[in-house]
Design a protein around this nucleic acid. Structure first.
Lengths: 217, 217
DNA sequence: TAGATTGTTAATCGATTAACAATC
DNA sequence: TAGATTGTTAATCGATTAACAATC
């Protein structure tokens, strides 16, 4: 139960996907090396922060030279676990669930949707890009038999907690949660929220703030 | 250009939608008053932080009593700008764009999708919940004629920057960006990112981290 | 070798938590 | 009045930035 692992802060972790994106672009553009200064100019973090961030995971650079783009990109990929493949299921085959099943980018990155589940008899039996929508009653069996590592939760808010508990019973340890609710689950279950409405409300907050500023003038 | 407005930090702002959610639940459950201590127990922020956060916007509580749930809920709603209505358009009518158009929750909150836009002739002319998919060439005209306040950007990464620039030319000042790219736009344009893959990668990071911890044992 | 740039330590800044006087 | 709980100031903690020695 000890926690030796020098915990990397959440702030750093949430910057990693952005590094990944920019490094991918550099690779795409055929750029071979980059300094923290130049990366700073592009990505918008300070050079100091960039070096600090990378050094949470070990030194990937070389004094006087900078960073080898390809090497750094591969390291970040590995840190993010993007060298692995993960079987996933989508629970809740409504519009959002179907959209995610349809979204090929995730599959390209190693996240493969093996099935969708729903309670709606009208949906059960349909296929999205060759992925079947199954009865939610079959979920437990499916999880056990198909080495499912991630559940993508796209049910309405009302059902989310209960469905999540069921998933955990069946051995799921990672949930990507789109339902607008904070799941209450055992500590060893990893939950990452994609609360779209929270994000939209921040946008609307900033609009309201702007409005207020303009009035005050 | 002066910035007198006592700027509320991003950390506080990003907690507001969560307060909103919990307060809504309290209202739904018919609870009339709540102390920061009890709210802390439910929401998981410290009582101290809760009081600090609310006091960024003025004192909504009463010593010895706590907070009136309904009043507080309405204040948070107002702060988030959720007492307003906003006309929106969705640009990019692929799976994600369609899913968002279909998602009735946003409309209930005052975000009304007036049209979708796409370049794909197969999609143009179709309707999603009575909302038409129009040719992207009509976008400028539509924005001008329909008091569109928010553009929801759901194009592929490759087109996002260019489409965003066009939107800004037509007067759009707020963009909810689902494309996996950081848009480079004038400072007065409000951009809120909903980078789904970034969120997924954080999940996969935590899985990889867990894996490593287990190995080290 | 001289110049560039990292890795890392120290300084600063901002956000969170604790404490408590004010007051309902 | 006594008890509860806020609003707010002060203390602490953690994250970001600056500085610089190490070194390619």
């Amino acid at each position: 139960m000890q926690r030796r692992t020098s915990k990397v802060s959440d702030a750093v972790i949430r910057r990693l996907p952005r590094y990944h994106r920019y490094l991918e672009e550099l690779v795409r553009d055929g750029i071979k090396r980059i300094s923290s200064k130049e990366l700073s100019r592009r990505i918008g973090f300070t050079a100091s922060q960039i070096r600090q961030d990378f050094n949470c995971f070990g030194g990937f650079g070389q004094q006087g030279y900078g960073y080898n783009v390809e090497l750094l990109y591969n390291e970040i990929k590995k840190i993010l676990g993007l060298n692995e493949r993960y079987n996933t299921i989508i629970v809740g085959a409504g519009n959002l669930g179907q959209a995610i099943a349809n979204y090929t980018n995730f599959r390209k990155r190693g996240f493969e949707v093996k099935a969708l589940f729903d309670i709606n008899p009208k949906l059960i039996g349909l296929s999205i890009r060759g992925i079947e929508i199954l009865d939610i009653d079959k979920m437990g069996e499916f999880v056990r038999d198909n080495d499912v590592k991630i559940a993508i939760l796209c049910t309405p808010r009302e059902n989310a907690q209960q469905v999540a508990e069921t998933l955990v019973e069946y051995g799921i340890k990672s949930i990507w949660n789109f339902a607008p609710i904070d799941l209450d689950l055992p500590n060893d279950v990893i939950v990452e929220n994609a609360h779209l409405s929270d994000s939209l409300y921040v946008l609307s907050y900033r609009m309201a703030e702007r409005e207020k500023e303009n009035k005050e003038k």
